[in-house]
Design a binder for these strands. Structure first.
Length: 394
RNA sequence: GGAGGGGUGGGUGAGCGGUUAAAGCCACCAGACUGUAAAUCUGGCGUCCGGAAGGGCUUCGUAGGUUCGAAUCCUACCCCCUCCA
């Protein structure tokens, strides 16, 4: 496959952390990069101008959701993903593999593909690696992803192996379909490594996927319930086995501390719903940790949520006003919180790129951790279990 | 003056003889959210002891009473609301 319009240039690589730049038909992306998530061709609550204004260089959309609604042909006829959503920059689409994982009861899976029952109208759909690839070709993002099988961390090794081998077969099919198509010039296809938290499986998977000439390599199947330590370790193990001259993308990660740790493991790209989802629920990231603006104590707080932040929300509004917006359920609250959190994350990425290129990333990382207090791991596990139970998917 | 309705935990509001320390909602407290079926979800919320299971104490306007047992029934009193004069 030769995607003449996509390339990756590594600028500095210092004991793990690296910085570089991706060139795509819709523009360049400095790395390490964070992609705000625009599942249904919209970063929830924000206009493309706001997403750009917050410092995003590339966004992620979801091919499965857009395939169900409005339909990939519709998006194509509307001028393609970027034109459709008025995002004049690089974009990546995910295949829908993750939806097979997260939509639990609505799907069945075999070696041929994933049989979904639409959450919208109950209709049945069969997502194969071929279809996932074609869907993404029609959508027209700069980077498209192989269909993979994500699996939860409670699964036993035989099951994880099966999912991994299936992911490998599908990767070959996706590559074959794409490489021989007219789209290969304009769209870069990334492969995805699976294998859970099993060292031998991850090694096998990384070697297998790296053996296919993709334009970039993703690490999938992490941040699905395993401990953070396991996640960091697995990430580092896999990146070490991937080609140095291709971008590495850690899918679905992460929280501020995860981003710092995984950049340290040599990751170049990330995406995560946390900044927008946490924001919609009243959570604001700061350099000291995350705070919940709906607490009574912010009612008459006249200062900004984070005085060191340069975002629109912090420059313009008081914490007390944001408290009020959330209590009154005004839409502006979640919007401003999303703007703040995305700005926080994107700025963190900017600072990491800077630190790497100035050969002081280790110090930056240490300073970050000294100030930032992440949420308690035990509480995470407990809440996660309760959540799954309440949702009935566990 | 006449007729009727009502006073329940921080607020609202169910309950109308035992299974009620008292539903639900709000507020408040604590927490979760990682390739978005999420502007969502979980737990706590009289008080004391206990890690927990559980146990003690005090609550439904006030004061009495009936009953094995009362927020629920009776009496008196104090407030509040609606309608008619």
């Amino acid at each position: 496959m030769s995607s003449s319009r996509f390339s990756f240039t590594l600028k500095y690589s210092l004991a793990g952390a690296r910085t570089g730049e991706m060139q795509t038909p819709h523009g360049s992306v400095p790395t390490p990069a964070f992609m705000p998530v625009a599942t249904q061709a919209s970063v929830k609550g924000l206009s493309p101008d706001e997403v750009r204004g917050v410092g995003a260089d590339i966004v992620l959309a979801n091919a499965y959701h857009l395939y169900l609604r409005p339909g990939v042909e519709t998006v194509q006829r509307m001028g393609g993903l970027q034109r459709f959503m008025e995002w004049n920059g690089p974009a990546l689409t995910d295949s829908g593999g993750f939806q097979a994982f997260s939509m639990g009861s609505l799907r069945r899976m075999d070696d041929e593909g994933i049989r979904f029952r639409s959450h919208l109208d109950g209709s049945e759909h069969f997502l194969t690696p071929e279809l996932a690839t074609v869907n993404q070709q029609l959508l027209g993002a700069d980077i498209i992803m192989c269909l993979d099988q994500c699996i939860n961390n409670e699964a036993g090794k035989p099951e994880v192996r099966q999912a991994m081998e299936r992911t490998h077969r599908w990767a070959e099919i996706c590559h074959q379909v794409h490489a021989s198509s007219q789209y290969a010039q304009d769209q870069a296809l990334f492969g995805i490594v699976q294998g859970g938290v099993f060292e031998d499986l991850r090694e096998e998977s990384a070697n297998f996927i790296a053996g296919i000439p993709f334009e970039g390599y993703a690490v999938g199947g992490l941040a699905v319930g395993e401990s953070k330590a396991q996640m960091y370790e697995t990430t580092g193990q896999v990146t070490a086995l991937l080609p140095e001259d291709k971008p590495r993308y850690l899918m679905g990660v992460g929280s501020p501390e995860d981003l710092v740790e995984c950049v340290a493991q040599g990751v170049d790209m990330f995406d995560c719903v946390l900044p927008t989802r946490v924001g919609r629920n009243g959570g604001f990231y700061t350099r000291e940790g995350r705070l919940d603006i709906t607490k009574r104590r912010y009612m008459e707080d006249t200062g900004p949520v984070d005085e060191s932040c340069d975002c629109y929300a912090c420059q313009r509004f008081s914490a007390g006003y944001l408290w009020h917006l959330f209590k009154a359920k005004e839409l502006l609250g979640p919007r401003l919180a999303s703007i703040h959190n995305l700005r926080f994350i994107l700025r963190l990425m900017e600072e990491m790129r800077q630190a790497i290129s100035e050969d002081r990333f280790d110090r930056f990382r240490a300073e970050f951790h000294r100030a930032y207090k992440p949420t308690d791991e035990a509480a995470r596990q407990e809440q996660k279990t309760r959540w799954l139970k309440a949702r009935g998917t566990s």
